[in-house]
Simulated assay, not measured.
Amino acid sequence: MNKSYNFKATALSVFAGLIIGSTSAFAHTRLDVPTMVEGTRIINNLVAHACGENNLIGTSIVFPDGADSTILVDGQPHTGALTDFLTNYGNNAQLIFNRGAFDLMGEKTDSTSNVVGFWAGGGPGVDHTLNVATPFRLTAPMFEPSSCATSAVVYISIANVCQITGTSQFGEGIVDLWTHNNLGTPYDRVGTTDDGPAPWTITRDLTVNPLPASCGTNGVKVELKPSASQINRDMPIFYKGSQVWPQ
C-alpha cells in the first residue's frame, strides 16, 4: 500500500480520533477554562463526550476570524471594526501537538497565516463511554483603552465527527454540531435557541485598563460570531491538500 493511499485511509479514520463530541444537550463541548482576563495566556482544553453510542472519529474547530464576523454590542449590531474594542485579536489559539488521544492534528489559517481553527483525529477513535480533551494554548486579546467594552464573548464553532459523510447525511450519531443555528450553512446546529458554540469570555482588567470616564460604570458587552462564508470555508478538514471531511 503506497503512502498516499495509506494516509487517505488514515485521514478518514483520522476523524476517527478527533476530539470533541457530544450528542446531548447535557454533554456540551466547552472550554475547560471559559473565562480569561485580557492579556493572559494559558493552556486550555476543549472537553467533550463522544457521540451517543458511536465512537468519536474527528473534530473541526473554528474561531471567528474578526474580518467579516458579526460584532454585537449589548446585543445590537456594530458596523465598525473589531479593533474598535480589541487591539490584538487574531492568531490567539495555537494547537499543542499531543498524541494522547489522536494521531493526527493540524491548524487552520487564514490568508494572513493567522490561526482560525484546528482539527485533530486519527487512530481508533474515542470510545463513546469516555470524555476527551484537546489541549491548545490560548492568548486573550487586549481591550482598546478608549473603548467602553468591559467584556468580549468569542463564539467557537465545533463539529464532532462520528461518521464520514457528506453534509446532506448530517444527523444524530453522524456529526454533533456545536455551532450557530441561524447562519444558513450546512453546518448550522438544529435548535430553537442559539446555544451551540462554545463561548470564550475575555474580561477587561479594570485596574490596569480602566474605562474612560465617558463610559460610566457599566461599560458594554461585545460578542463576536463567525460569518457564514467563514464557516463554509474553514469548517471542512483538509489533509495534505485534500478534503477528507465532509465527503
Results as ranks from 00 to 15, higher is better:
Met1Ile: 03
Asn2Val: 08
Lys3Glu: 13
Ser4Ile: 12
Phe7Val: 10
Lys8Phe: 13
Val14Met: 05
Ala16Gly: 14
Gly17Ile: 00
Leu18Gly: 15
Ser22Arg: 06
Thr23Asp: 13
Phe26Gly: 15
Ala27Phe: 05
His28Val: 08
Arg30Glu: 14
Arg30Gly: 13
Leu31Val: 12
Leu31Glu: 00
Pro34Lys: 09
Thr35Gly: 03
Met36Trp: 04
Met36Asn: 06
Val37Arg: 12
Glu38Ser: 10
Thr40Met: 08
Thr40Asn: 12
Ile42Gly: 02
Ile43Glu: 10
Leu46Gly: 11
Leu46Lys: 01
Leu46Pro: 04
Ala48His: 08
His49Cys: 07
Glu53Ser: 12
Glu53His: 09
Ile57Arg: 12
Gly58Gln: 02
Gly58Met: 09
Gly58Phe: 04
Thr59Val: 01
Ser60His: 07
Ile61Glu: 04
Phe63Lys: 07
Gly66Cys: 11
Thr70Glu: 13
Leu72Ile: 10
Val73Ser: 13
Asp74Phe: 07
Gln76Glu: 15
Gln76Tyr: 09
Pro77Ser: 11
Pro77Leu: 11
Thr79Trp: 01
Thr79Met: 02
Asp84Glu: 14
Leu86Val: 05
Thr87Gln: 14
Ala93Lys: 07
Gln94Tyr: 00
Gln94Pro: 06
Gln94Met: 07
Leu95Met: 11
Ile96Cys: 10
Phe97Met: 08
Asn98Asp: 15
Gly100Phe: 01
Asp103Met: 12
Thr109Asn: 09
Ser113Tyr: 04
Ser113Arg: 10
Val115Glu: 05
Val116Arg: 09
Phe118Val: 04
Trp119Leu: 03
Ala120Leu: 03
Gly123Lys: 05
Pro124Asn: 14
Gly125Met: 06
Gly125Leu: 05
Val126His: 10
Asn131His: 10
Val132His: 08
Val132Leu: 04
Val132Tyr: 06
Leu138Asp: 09
Thr139Phe: 05
Thr139Ser: 13
Pro141Asn: 07
Phe143Ile: 06
Pro145Trp: 00
Ser146Ala: 14
Ala149Val: 03
Thr150Asn: 13
Ala152Cys: 14
Val153His: 04
Val153Glu: 15
Val154His: 06
Ala159Tyr: 07
Ala159Met: 01
Asn160Gly: 15
Val161Pro: 02
Gln163Gly: 03
Ile164Ala: 15
Ile164Ser: 15
Thr165Phe: 08
Ser168Gln: 15
Glu172Asn: 10
Val175Gln: 06
Trp178Ile: 05
Thr179Tyr: 02
His180Ile: 05
His180Trp: 01
Asn181Ile: 02
Leu183Arg: 00
Leu183Ala: 09
Gly184Cys: 08
Pro186Glu: 04
Tyr187Trp: 14
Tyr187Gln: 10
Asp188Thr: 00
Arg189Lys: 09
Arg189Met: 09
Thr193Gln: 13
Gly196Thr: 02
Pro197Glu: 07
Pro197Arg: 05
Ala198Tyr: 00
Ala198Cys: 07
Arg204Asn: 10
Asp205His: 02
Ala213Cys: 09
Ala213Asp: 12
Ser214Arg: 00
Thr217Ile: 08
Gly219Ala: 09
Val220Trp: 03
Val220Phe: 08
Val222Thr: 04
Leu224His: 03
Pro226Ala: 13
Ala228Leu: 01
Ala228Lys: 12
Ile231Ser: 03
Arg233Gly: 00
Arg233Phe: 07
Pro236Leu: 09
Ile237Lys: 02
Lys240Gly: 00
Val244Ala: 14
Trp245Asn: 06
Pro246Thr: 04
Pro246Trp: 01
